[in-house]
Design a protein around this nucleic acid. Structure first.
Lengths: 142, 142
DNA sequence: ACAAAATATGACGTTAACGTTAAGGTTATA
DNA sequence: TATAACCTTAACGTTAACGTCATATTTTGT
């Protein structure tokens, strides 16, 4: 399936302006264009956009941070797809270790956030129980 | 222990400007002042500041959203502490149900985010394994 | 084929969340 | 006690992340 920017906006929940902006700052790669310059998005493009939206919402990253996060993912995929010829490329042992370390840092950070969120959630659940207690004692008195 | 704004900034990782700004927009309550107007923070103040910082980082909320989140918590605490006299106050059954529903909405949202984050984490772990695989095959060849 | 609707590229506007500087009071310390 | 280091408010500056025209092309429905 192919989509123009309006449909892309609808399905991702972004505005057209935001999509163009993301393209402009390099957060997403430029999609194909028609002969005369109209942007055309395929399913993979849409999927990536969705991914960006979700990551932004969930991780609470700025677009810059998001950029780095996505770049890191891209790097690993590149490395892995060129796996066989990796010795011949400019990819150095050091670079790979760098990537691995960055990934570990991201994992640790996610872990921390997940733990903190779980704590918040527990707190909220306690609060809700308190509220519901008051509510039920309310109902008894009727 | 009592702190002036500089120390409060150091221990929370915020800037002095940010702390004053948070007070200004009502995100945190105004601390005590000395005779001549210097802000003085006690341990509870600091703890609340820390809480704000963590919540902002982890939840990725805007200060407005954070405001509502904190207000909700405050509401429940107020309700619960006035529990016995709740019938005599202006607190209506409807209001309580409203609060309970808001809390549930927050809980659901946290749950979604936790799930998504866990997904992201798993993805990162897979990527790291890939990177480490390449690394170890690198080492074997030496 | 032509009007209406959608798209493209500027360019300026807006809001949140502070940063920074200025001009004064205050507190600590040598 | 003076003076450096810190505090205060006020006001203007800055950056990110778009919103909102404006103007020109393109695409689409009839």
């Amino acid at each position: 399936m192919l989509y123009k920017i309006e449909e892309a906006a609808q399905t991702t929940g972004l505005t057209k302006r935001a999509i163009r902006y993301y393209e402009q700052i390099g957060l997403i790669s430029a999609p194909e264009r028609t002969e005369k310059g109209t942007r055309v998005y395929d399913d993979q493009d849409i999927e990536r956009l969705q991914n960006v939206v979700t990551a932004k919402e969930v991780l609470g990253f700025s677009l810059q941070e998001l950029q780095q996060y996505l770049d890191l993912k891209e790097q690993v995929k590149t490395v892995y797809s060129h796996y066989q010829s990796v010795q011949e490329t400019t990819m150095q042992h050091e670079d790979l270790k760098q990537i691995s370390d960055s990934l570990q840092a991201q994992i640790d950070m996610l872990d921390q956030k997940i733990n903190q969120m779980t704590t918040f959630k527990t707190e909220m659940e306690n609060l809700k129980n308190q509220a519901d207690n008051v509510l039920s004692s309310f109902n008894k008195e009727k």
